[in-house]
Structures are given as structure tokens and as C-alpha cells.
Amino acid sequence: MKVLPTTCPSCSNQLNVKSLICESCQTEIQGQYELPLLSRLSFHDQDFIIEFIKASGSLKEMARLLGLSYPTVRNRLDEIIEHIKPAEKSRKEKKA
């Protein structure tokens, strides 16, 4: 499975979407779109968030499902929050 690149390999800046294509009719839309916030996270982070939602947002349940301790799961979530913060900040700045 190909991994969606989210940062520029040359300058490490955030990549944007230039075109979108319909697989069915091949209609192509060109433009400049920002990647959604969650798409900018690593695959592991995205997996964690999906599992977290499936566990109804319960860290205890997540810990049980993953076979990890509660603080380990909480630390992982806090790590993801720290990853999200700068992206969210830059998005807000662009909007303003």
C-alpha cells in the first residue's frame, strides 16, 4: 500500500493537494487544497485515532484492547495532540 506523502521531501514543508480525480469517469479537478488535519498525521497516529473512536473515546477500553497500561495509552494520545497543535495553529493563522 502506498503511503500518502504529507511533507515535501525537498524542504520538509507541508504538501498541498493539487488535483483530485474520479476513478469512475476520470473527471479531474485541479486547484490547491490543504490536506485535512488528520491526513497530515502518520499512519500509526491515524490508526490510533480510529481505534480510539471505535473504543468510544475510552482510554481504559483502548488500554484493554491494545494490551497496554492506561498511562501508556494516555501518553500516546497526548503525543498525537502535540502533533496536531502546530498544524491546527497554522490553519487558524491562514484563515485569519
Binding site: G67, L68, S69, Y70, P71, T72
Partner: peptide, 10 residues
């Protein structure tokens, strides 16, 4: 081991 066990169990 705290990666796997914490809280009341620990």
C-alpha cells in the same frame, strides 16, 4: 513493565 501494567493492578 509499566508500558503494560499500571494503576490498581500495579
Amino acid at each position: 513493565p509499566f508500558k503494560f501494567i499500571a494503576g490498581f493492578k500495579a
